[in-house]
Computed example of a mutant assay.
Amino acid sequence: MEPISLAILAAVASGAGGEFGKYLLEQLTSLVRRPTREQPAGTVELERLQLRPIDRERAQQLRTVLEERANQDSEFRCALEAWANTAAQHADTLFGDVQNELSGGTVNGYLLQGKNFSNLSFGYTPPSPRPKPEPEKTD
C-alpha cells in the first residue's frame, strides 16, 4: 500500500476543499469508525488531528495507525486505498493552485488571499427596495 499523504490528511482534517473536503472527512471518519474487535484504531488520532491539523506529528500518528490497521485487515486496506486514491486524484480541490504572498509595505484597507470567494460585502449595504406607491383613493 502506498503511504497516505500527510498533506492530504491534514487538509481533510482542517476542513479544506469545501463540500468535497467535508465528503472526504465524512468518508475517512466512517472508515476509521468501522467496528473492530478493539476500539476502532485511528479514531483518537483523527480527532486529535482535527483539533490541530497543522501538526505534522499528529498527521504522521494517524497515518501510522491507519497503515497498521490496513496491514491487519484486508477489507479495511482496500477501502483505505480507495479513499486515498480519491483524495489524491482530487488534491487540487483540497489545495488549489493559489499562491498568496504579501511582503513589505503596509496594507490600508481590505486584503483577501485565497481562492473561490463569493458573496462578499465590504461595508456596502444594497439600497432597500422602494415602497410601492399606494393606489389613489377615489371617493
Rank of each mutant, 00 (worst) to 15 (best):
S74V: 10
T138F: 13
E134N: 09
L112W: 12
K137V: 10
F117A: 07
D73N: 13
L6D: 09
Q60C: 01
L28D: 02
L102A: 11
Y124T: 01
K132D: 14
G109W: 03
T86V: 07
R77S: 15
R37V: 07
A91K: 14
V98M: 07
A59F: 03
E47P: 00
V44H: 08
P129N: 05
E81K: 09
G42H: 03
T29K: 08
C78A: 14
A41Y: 00
A11P: 01
A59P: 05
P35W: 04
R48S: 10
Y23E: 15
D92G: 01
K137R: 11
R34N: 09
V44Y: 10
I8N: 06
G42D: 05
A7Y: 05
E67L: 14
L28F: 02
W83D: 08
D97L: 12
T36V: 03
T106Q: 14
T86M: 10
F76C: 09
A70P: 03
V32S: 06
S121P: 00
D55K: 09
G123E: 06
A11K: 07
S14R: 12
A16N: 09
G96Q: 11
I4Q: 03
L111H: 07
V44P: 00
A59I: 07
P40S: 02
D92C: 00
W83Y: 07
V98Q: 11
K137D: 11
R37P: 00
